[in-house]
């Protein structure tokens, strides 16, 4: 078990290194030059020699492999470099923006899970065929809704027409309601689809009939027997969907004018601020790897068959 755990953590580290390397090479391969974008501004009146000096100060002239090792070493010690555009250490702008995005992502994910569970349970428990069918159709609708469109629609309806959520100077939590909703809907869709399909599949299993034959009610069988089995594959998908959550945060924060990792990324792309982009990629990869590691480690706790296979 311990050996498997160590191997799994080792794998996660390899993935992180690969993400770092790939993003480093891709960002280097771009023809863009953040230093030129910032300092070529004629108002600054810098001579080409001075710009070359700045280049050298940022270490841009060094050979690629030495830049790579340098950057890798810095990342390992927690130094993410300096943002060319803002002129501040990337670590500081991350520290300022990460908590807001983490809150948004965590709430969005939570809301997505609740939405997915609600849709799939209701569609399985309701006795009305029309309600069941319309609930079952919801995920396909949700999955095809673009985040930016949904965000704008939510503001239009809830803020401007119904005036339920203030847009001007909202409280710290009020501010989050609509973005979380906009983020949760498209994430909940695949979750609900997988969950409904799994619930349907588990319901045909003989052990469900055996549980009913013991005299357990439909509700009780759904909770005690079906859901624990149907959740297992859903968990894997949930881990993968986390990546979508990060991508969704970029759009959501832009639409709702929130500060966070999303807006930071968007600005960094616009200014081709490589140091920030590199940090964002590595942070996202880390979050992604950690979530999936957690899912993997959670699995044996939920399914004794996997725990047994691990113990071997």
């Amino acid at each position: 078990m311990v050996r498997r755990l160590l191997a799994r953590i080792g794998q996660a580290l390899v993935v992180l290194l690969a993400a770092f390397t790939a993003s480093f090479l891709l960002l280097q391969a771009l023809p863009a030059d953040a230093i030129l974008i910032k300092f070529m501004n004629p108002d600054l009146g810098l001579s080409p020699e001075q710009i070359a000096e700045i280049h050298a100060a940022y270490g841009a002239g060094m050979p690629l492999w030495s830049q790579y090792l340098h950057a890798l070493g810095n990342f390992l010690t927690g130094d993410f470099g300096t943002s060319v555009q803002a002129g501040v250490p990337v670590r500081d702008s991350l520290a300022a923006n990460l908590p807001a995005t983490l809150t948004l992502a965590a709430l969005g994910f939570l809301a997505a899970v609740i939405l997915a569970l609600a849709v799939s349970f209701l569609s399985n428990l309701t006795g009305f065929v029309w309600l069941r069918n319309s609930l079952a159709a919801l995920p396909s609708l949700f999955v095809s809704v673009p985040v930016f469109w949904l965000g704008i629609l939510l503001i239009q309806v809830f803020s401007f027409q119904l005036k339920l959520v203030p847009v001007i100077d909202p409280g710290p939590w009020e501010r989050l309601i609509l973005p979380v909703a906009a983020l949760a809907v498209p994430i909940s869709a695949p979750l609900a689809q997988i969950l409904m399909r799994n619930i349907d599949a588990v319901l045909t299993q003989p052990f469900v009939a055996v549980a009913r034959a013991k005299g357990a009610s439909r509700h009780s069988v759904l909770w005690r027997h079906v859901v624990p089995n149907a959740l297992l594959p859903t968990l894997t998908i949930a881990g993968v969907l986390f990546g979508e959550l990060l991508a969704g945060a970029v759009v959501t924060e832009t639409v709702f004018g929130l500060n966070g990792l999303g807006t930071l990324t968007q600005q960094a792309v616009a200014n081709q601020d490589m140091a920030v982009l590199q940090a964002v990629v590595v942070i996202s990869a880390t979050a992604f790897v950690l979530i999936n590691l957690a899912v993997d480690l959670l699995y044996p706790l939920l399914d004794p068959r996997i725990a047994e296979a691990d113990a071997r």
Binding site: P206, F207, A209, A211, A213, P228, N229, L232, L302, P304
Partner: peptide, 15 residues
């Protein structure tokens, strides 16, 4: 009460 056909799939695997 019921005794089912296939004992292999008639018990809940996670309980």
């Amino acid at each position: 009460s019921l005794i089912p056909q296939d004992p292999g799939s008639s018990l809940n695997p996670v309980k």
